[in-house]
């Protein structure tokens, strides 16, 4: 029975190669397509960074990287999924600043320690922006007004516990002021309310108000960054004004903590090559996003610093659970 023998041979052959595959897989990562989980909806800032990165990194990995959006819970659903993924490098994720804020709110099963950072790609600081008709021309005038009128200055943010709310709270605690924080469903509605003069200021990123700055309808008073923004060099940093507050949102690639070192190294190297491409940087600039690459270890340091800061801040303002 020739046929029978052939089948046996095929089965044995398949089994052997399957066993060999497993051994090879760890050494020759990646051997199949990689899923990049984005915890926010398609079309948003995090998604745009992810898609630009996937485009670029595809040229430096033997297998393709595909974006999958897992939305919900202000990022908690997607981030939980990244944390719980099998640590084999085939499900990696976009880690955002919410990794360091959500655990304090008591709505997440992860902490910052559950992730191994691969590369930070983008960061946007918070900025204090007011209507162009507002009487305050400088941040000092604005803060002085807030001091005289505690609770009267309404600052719009993108949701309670979200990064821009925390930024405004950080400014309030550091400068001993009292604002009225108004949460909106995202940064855009808050900016709209500011344009209509329904609130006094917003704490969203310069990128989210840039078109209105260009049109002359809004004015940035200060940014919460270590250095001035390249796009708006006239706006001072709070640090320059003696208020040591830096708050920024950031986005980068992370993998589950237990991912083997060789996979982490492969991804780090590929990411480094991807972000060095001019095409990737141009695409970010085009989308009004700032390029802010940090390699894995430095990204980890930045992440830990934020985790510590938000832990203290959120306890102080009574948001921690």
């Amino acid at each position: 029975m020739k046929g029978y023998r052939f089948v046996t041979g095929a089965v044995v052959g398949a089994l052997t190669s399957a066993t060999m595959m497993v051994a090879v897989q760890a050494a020759e990562y990646p051997t199949k397509a990689i899923e990049l989980i984005v915890p926010y909806a398609a079309g948003g800032g995090t998604d745009l960074v992810a898609r630009a990165y996937a485009d670029a990194v595809n040229r430096h990995l033997p297998q393709s990287v595909g974006v999958v959006n897992k939305t919900g819970g202000g990022g908690a659903v997607g981030l939980s999924e990244i944390m719980a993924a099998r640590p084999d490098g085939y499900r990696i994720g976009m880690g955002t600043v919410e990794i360091t804020t959500l655990p304090n709110l008591g709505v997440a099963r992860f902490t910052a320690d559950d992730f191994t950072p691969i590369a930070r790609l983008n960061a946007e600081p918070s900025a204090i922006t007011v209507n162009a008709n507002a009487p305050w021309k400088t941040i000092e005038e604005f803060l002085a007004y807030a001091k005289e009128n505690p609770g009267k200055v309404r600052i719009g943010n993108s949701g309670t516990g979200a990064i821009w709310h925390l930024a405004a709270e950080a400014l309030a605690t550091k400068s001993g002021l009292k604002f009225s924080h108004i949460p909106y469903d995202g940064a855009n509605p808050a900016v709209t309310a500011l344009l209509g003069n329904h609130i006094e200021a917003v704490s969203v990123s310069p990128a989210e108000v840039s078109s209105h700055i260009a049109a002359g309808t809004l004015r940035i008073l200060a940014v919460m960054d270590d250095q001035r923004s390249k796009a708006f060099p006239d706006a001072p940093t709070l640090k320059e004004k003696g208020i040591d507050v830096t708050v920024a949102t950031w986005r980068g690639i992370v993998v589950p903590k237990k991912t083997p070192a060789n996979i982490v190294e492969t991804l780090r190297a590929a990411s480094k090559k991807a972000v060095e491409e001019q095409g990737f940087r141009d695409q970010l600039t085009k989308m009004n996003l700032s390029y802010a690459y940090l390699d894995g270890p430095e990204y980890k340091v930045a992440m830990e610093k934020d985790a510590e800061m938000f832990k203290v801040l959120m306890k102080q303002i009574g948001l921690s659970k």
Binding site: G73, L105, V107, T160, L319
Partner: peptide
């Protein structure tokens, strides 16, 4: 889902999927 102003979960039974 998440309380629109306070940001805390309501009737979600611990499921993050029910935040919205």
């Amino acid at each position: 889902g998440l309380d629109p102003m306070g940001g805390f979960p309501r009737y979600t039974g611990g499921y993050t999927e029910l935040f919205n």
